[in-house]
């Protein structure tokens, strides 16, 4: 193992924390992966009306934007690469 790689390695504590954070967001909003997929397709459809997008590499995700308290305003984050603004 390289010197840099040793320091870059995440501790299992960090891995657990990161996994839980993502897991609990989807648990809390009670949103199934199928539903997320449907939302994604629908968003792509709507945006495609106005501009040319790369639907294949678009990503959507529910994140918690608030800092304190439970369920503080979860928000839908979408990353949609635009190929051409003018359709």
């Amino acid at each position: 193992m390289g010197f840099g790689k040793f320091f870059m390695r995440k501790s299992s504590r960090e891995i657990a924390k990161d996994r839980l954070k993502i897991l609990l967001i989807s648990d809390r909003v009670n949103c199934s992966p199928e539903m997320m997929d449907m939302i994604k397709t629908d968003i792509a459809k709507v945006i495609s009306k106005y501009m040319k997008i790369d639907a294949k590499s678009m990503e959507i995700q529910i994140t918690k934007t608030g800092t304190k308290g439970r369920m503080k305003t979860p928000s839908l984050y979408a990353n949609i690469p635009i190929i051409d603004v003018n359709k």
Binding site: S11, S12, R13, A16, K17, K21, L24, K68, G69, R70
Partner: peptide, 19 residues
Amino acid sequence: MVKRGDMMSAADVVDILSI
């Protein structure tokens, strides 16, 4: 284990559960 980075600390758990 917390010290080694192999277990979540109490602060980590409180941070996640927020109660």
